[in-house]
Amino acid sequence: MIKCIVLTHGDLGFALLNTTEKIIGPLEGIKVISNELTSLKDLITNLDSIVKNWEESEILIMVDFCGGSCWHAARVIKRSMSNIALLSGVNLPMMLSFVNKRESYKLPDLAYYLKECSLKGTEVIAGEEKQE
């Protein structure tokens, strides 16, 4: 079973996990880290300690957005580790699909699959709808 770290600004990661558990039920093997009031070096250290504990597992690190300190820390940790994949833009469709597919997929396939789920989970409704 693939493990997961949700790495975000502020409370976003905690709220995402909390909401996912409300929909699906209690979950294991998912950790949340926030960059709130943390230096980049400490963020990397925090991430590293979780990854070391899970070195036997495949780990997906889901980050809120590409380009911030969270993404930076994740890139540093991933650098030489083949059991880790990174995915940015974490959202609820991704979280739900992760839980559903974490046992049937391997990395990095799961990461690509979740990216697709995120795109498919985004709809635009605009203009006038046809009246019956």
Binding site: N35, S39, L40, G68, H72
Partner: peptide, 10 residues
């Protein structure tokens, strides 16, 4: 800024 280049800056 000890995070150097990050969201608050960019």
């Amino acid at each position: 800024d000890d995070r150097l280049i990050h969201g608050q800056v960019t």
